[in-house]
Design a protein around this nucleic acid. Structure first.
Lengths: 335, 335
DNA sequence: CATTTGTTTGAAAGCGGTTTCATACAGGGT
DNA sequence: ACCCTGTATGAAACCGCTTTCAAACAAATG
């Protein structure tokens, strides 16, 4: 059952009465091969259930047919959606993805990048992360690089991102339009550019509406549910009398929701809640959460396709992804 | 910035005044090397920032230092937790993981397995999936194989699983102990062994309690939230007067929860709800969901470690993972 | 018919490591 | 001294495929 140990190109060559070279040629279709020989080779390959050895190929051709994906915090709904999109986009291309987890720590990220390079990946897709522009630029010099979910100044044309500032501004604006004036914000880890941009969007929307921003009403979380819960507790401790909360992501919104629930505060009748990301679960929160949609899977897929283009040596033009507010049931209109 | 194109073993050899062979020896530590030469080699390697070429190594040594992970439905919270565990377990071992998504379709699964084998992965970890035992056994003959989250008869000693029957039995039993007699079940896709086992556990618990099982009260879902919602609608359509619902996973429980919410039915005051998996979000549902915990990340990590053992040629002894009921706030005690 | 041009094909040289095998050398024993 | 062992090292073969290079042959040109 396993003596089919290794069928090599040579076996195929022998069976088809041609040389290795010819077999290789039909394999890579880099040169014209007479129809009959090509047929013979193909036949032999299927007869012997031939499977080219990726390593030999990689060694000789310099192509690994592998693209490395650096992700953070594997298992978070938003990033996973991006990853799924990447896998989807790579599907059928002959390229496989190898994942490494940077865990939101600069050191492991750089380590991960090194490993990938050492594995001769043909390209690298970086999803989020903290690694600085200079580091990424250096990596980009060694292999095609695409950054998704983040904007890096040094690599602007290789980044796939959404305008977090504008999205947060719009979300806040929506709250204002619904009559809310006392709006608290649960920010993400502010070391994140995304988190900072969202906070800024919130701040500017308030300012533009002529509302004084109260620093006490902005609590920094870490994007995890627990921090959303804690943030609400903190707000109460500070005596904040808010009518609405804008959370920088859905998970924190869920945490906030629970904190409110524990105090018997109804959403949206007593307090309005709005999230960010539109992860799958948001639609099943109680009540279903109004949130800002980021087309995560689509971004991942686009990243993969762009990478494929890059590998073919073509130029790429990255689209700007737009967010949109998904209206559900967690926002109340104030009289 | 990128002319360090390729530092090869030969460069190291030259710089350290030794032969390729010696360099290789210190690289793989397969043979004794004089201390001074070893030092010289090490020095040269760090001087030149040497990074061995994985492909050359794989070709020559037959080791790819890669382990393939076949997953399903990338992005589902439960499976992602397992994947995270795998990554964690592999960390620092020198092995990297390459992921492929089987999408819960037999055909793509087999396709994925083929690709992995073609990529000469050193081992394969299968997470869930439908592929039948015979297929997996065949794969196992070609590379070390570990199956997690599923029990395959042909490969019993290579499977990491939890006793779904017992877990479901216990969960149902818990409901019974709390005075519930009218318990509905939202099953997973029954083509899944897991889903079937959970359903059976539910059925047996009822029978053992002398309660007649009503087929109308068992609705088959597909493990996604939406199906949980639909299931509840279906139950109402069928006129089921249940006091509790046991959902085969947390996502369907969330869907069910929303359906109840829409009808103004309170949980747990009016209807009790219990889930399965204990995904991260379960603790943040409204109310926090009582559910069966499966140590997903731990299972993943164990799978990775077991794989590492297998690759070292050691025998493995897979632990049996136990589930436990996580008591939260979605279950009410009936008088 | 000789010569040029073009196309298909095979031989052979890598790609960068690992591993076998033989050699050189240092000790040990008698 | 002489032979036997044992060990560190280098030379060379090899892993399976890609790719250059040149040869062989066919067709086209004058």
């Amino acid at each position: 059952m396993e003596q089919n140990k290794k069928v090599t190109i040579e076996d195929i060559a022998a069976r088809a009465n041609v040389s290795k070279s010819t077999v290789s040629r039909v394999l890579t279709s880099t040169a014209r091969v007479a129809d009959d020989k090509r047929a013979a080779v193909l036949q032999a390959m299927s007869d012997l259930d031939y499977q080219p050895n990726i390593f030999a190929r990689g060694l000789a051709g310099g192509q690994s047919m592998t693209i490395g994906v650096l992700t953070q915090n594997f298992g978070s709904p938003f990033y996973d959606a991006i990853l799924r999109g990447i896998l989807q986009g790579l599907d059928g291309s002959g390229y496989s993805a190898i994942f490494t987890d940077g865990r939101w720590a600069r050191a492991s990220e750089e380590e991960a990048l090194r490993t990938m390079l050492g594995r001769q990946v043909d390209g690298i897709i970086v999803v989020g992360g903290y690694s600085d522009g200079a580091t990424l630029a250096k990596v980009a010099a060694q292999a095609p690089l695409i950054v998704v979910g983040r904007k890096v100044a040094e690599l602007a044309d290789r980044c796939l991102w959404v305008d977090n500032f504008q999205a947060a501004y719009d979300a806040t604006r929506y709250l204002l339009d619904n009559g809310h004036r006392r709006i608290a914000h649960i920010a993400g880890a502010l070391a994140h550019d995304d988190a900072a941009a969202r906070r800024d969007g919130y701040v500017h929307a308030l300012e533009d509406a002529g509302i004084a921003v109260n620093g006490d009403w902005i609590i920094e979380g870490d994007f995890l549910s627990q921090s959303g819960l804690l943030a609400v507790e903190m707000l109460f401790t500070r005596g904040a009398l808010f009518s609405a909360i804008f959370a920088a992501n859905d998970q924190m919104a869920a945490g906030a929701r629970l904190a409110l629930h524990r105090r018997g505060i109804r959403v949206p009748q007593d307090v309005t809640l709005i999230g960010f990301d539109n992860v799958a679960d948001a639609a099943y929160m109680i009540p279903p959460l109004t949130t800002v949609n980021q087309p995560a899977a689509e971004m991942g897929e686009t990243a993969a396709n762009a990478m494929l283009q890059l590998l073919k040596g073509k130029a790429i033009e990255l689209p700007v992804f737009t967010t949109e507010l998904v209206l559900r049931e967690s926002v109340a209109r104030l009289p």
